[in-house]
């Protein structure tokens, strides 16, 4: 159900599954906006033994709702389906804060230690780096940005998540990207469900942001 099947609509500029309707011109404009966000905010410089990619998700919920979920570095379990528990060391949330994430069973990890690199409430940018854990993602760094957009004439949100990571021994760049993308797709799909549910549940929220 969660949209891992098919694969359409996740890539930047692949806007067929985007705003839903609006015609080719609007889709073209949306794609151009995505490309601009990408260029400005998601430029990784992967090394030779690294891979990098970016995924997009269009969410039918206002940007402040989506951002409130994305920005909660101390509570990724609010939307990430594979996180069972999260504790921030020291308690205070600031740039450089480190969170200890427990991962649910059945996955190729049980813990991950992650540092907050950037949290920009004006531009809506969150950047996180993995600094430890029993997973195979070394030097993993991610950037999530959220942007207001109009979906079927209603306030919606464009989410872009990009990453760069070392390709581990025994895997190809393609495999590494495929795996990380699969996990990010799950996270973004869940982010959309939680946000859209919140949007329905809070009719008092302003229609426009």
């Amino acid at each position: 159900m969660v949209g891992l099947v098919g694969g359409g609509g996740w890539r930047v500029g692949d806007d067929a599954a985007g705003g839903g309707g609006g015609g080719a011109v609007a889709a073209g404009a949306a794609a151009a906006a995505e490309a601009e966000h990408m260029r400005r905010l998601h430029s990784h410089a992967p090394g030779e033994h690294q891979c990098s990619s970016a995924l997009v998700k269009h969410i039918k919920a206002p940007v402040h709702l989506v951002w409130s979920l994305v920005r909660s570095f101390d509570q990724p379990q609010r939307y990430k389906p594979f996180v069972s528990r999260c504790v921030v060391r020291g308690g205070d949330l600031e740039i450089g804060s480190v969170r200890e994430v427990n991962v649910k069973t059945g996955l190729p990890a049980t813990t991950s230690t992650e540092r907050l690199e950037l949290l920009d409430d004006d531009e809506h940018i969150l950047s996180v780096k993995f600094v430890g854990g029993d997973h195979r993602l070394r030097n993993y760094s991610s950037i999530v940005t959220v942007h207001p957009e109009s979906i079927d004439g209603r306030p919606g949100t464009l989410v872009i998540e990009s990453f760069v990571v070392d390709v581990p021994d025994g895997n190809t760049k393609d495999e590494t990207c495929y795996f990380v993308e699969a996990v990010i797709k799950c996270n973004l799909t869940s982010l959309a469900e939680v946000s859209e549910r919140l949007a329905v549940q809070s009719p008092t929220s302003p229609l426009e942001q």
Partner: peptide, 22 residues
């Protein structure tokens, strides 16, 4: 994908199960 053993999408280490709708 072989990611700490053979896994479906690199995620789940079994190919059949009850549940796992995703």
């Amino acid at each position: 994908i072989y990611w700490d053993g053979a896994r479906v999408l690199g995620v789940l280490a079994m190919s059949r199960a009850i549940g796992d709708g995703y």
